[in-house]
């Protein structure tokens, strides 16, 4: 059994950013955080049995839309990635691809025990046990399976976290990309790569930290065939 205490249920508080000079900036940030917490489009990656609890959460019985939560179809449109069940190695590749295609700020919710520690697939050779080793998980909703009430309760917790600005694990993915990439490489091999240029994105948006690059990203660059956007060119 892995050490349950290591599962990050609450992430640490980040140091407050340097004071903004514009007095309205605070109000504006507040508004943006409010909007982000009250409008969450979710992409449910239905990997396992937990998906069955989502339709009741969305439809007339529990109606997530009254909280501003809606299902969406593609990663580009989504804010939350719901991983609803056990994560096999093959599936995990797709989950990472999907996660990286989502625009930030983005949140990951692991539903069911399987995403927490592998659950009943603990002994499976083909199952990734702990989702948060590969992706920055905002919240786990444990249970086998969690009832819709629990799902909505989790969503509300996430909303509160977003609004207070306390929880921003999506930045963690950029800032400690090397760590996550290392775990991914451990599972998929050294030639693992996704089409999204995470390091480039981190630098473009000023999200890079000291641990963005490291030994694992060097391995990545060794194997990577970089996908650089086609530049408009006149000659």
């Amino acid at each position: 059994m892995s050490d349950l205490s290591k599962i990050p249920i609450h992430t640490e508080k980040h140091a407050p950013e340097e004071a903004r000079t514009n007095p309205l900036a605070g109000v504006f940030d507040e508004l943006v955080r409010f909007a982000q917490s009250r409008s969450m489009y979710m992409l449910h990656y239905c990997t396992g049995c937990g998906a069955i609890e989502l339709p009741p959460a969305m439809t007339s019985r529990f109606d997530m839309e009254r909280l501003g939560i809606q299902p969406m179809v593609t990663p580009r449109q989504a804010d939350i990635l719901l991983v609803t069940g056990y994560v096999s190695v093959k599936t995990l590749k797709r989950i990472i691809l999907t996660y990286e295609q989502m625009p930030s700020p983005k949140y990951v919710i692991g539903i069911c025990s399987c995403t927490v520690n592998g659950g009943m697939y603990w002994q499976s050779y083909a199952t990734a046990k702990k989702l948060s080793e590969y992706l920055p998980v905002d919240l786990y909703i444990a249970g086998c399976m969690p009832r819709p009430e629990a799902v909505i309760e989790g969503m509300r917790a996430l909303m509160a976290n977003i609004q207070s600005g306390e929880t921003e694990p999506w930045k963690d993915y950029y800032q400690r990309y090397d760590y996550y990439l290392g775990n991914q490489q451990h599972l998929f091999g050294d030639n693992w790569q996704t089409p999204t240029d995470v390091i480039g994105q981190a630098q473009h948006y000023g999200l890079a930290g000291p641990e963005t690059e490291g030994e694992h990203t060097r391995i990545l660059q060794q194997y990577q065939q970089p996908l650089v956007a086609h530049k408009l060119r006149l000659k």
Partner: peptide
Amino acid sequence: GRSEPVHQLDNYAGGHFL
């Protein structure tokens, strides 16, 4: 919001690697 251009293969294909 600043945008960043991506390569055409960084594209939605239902989780498929293009």
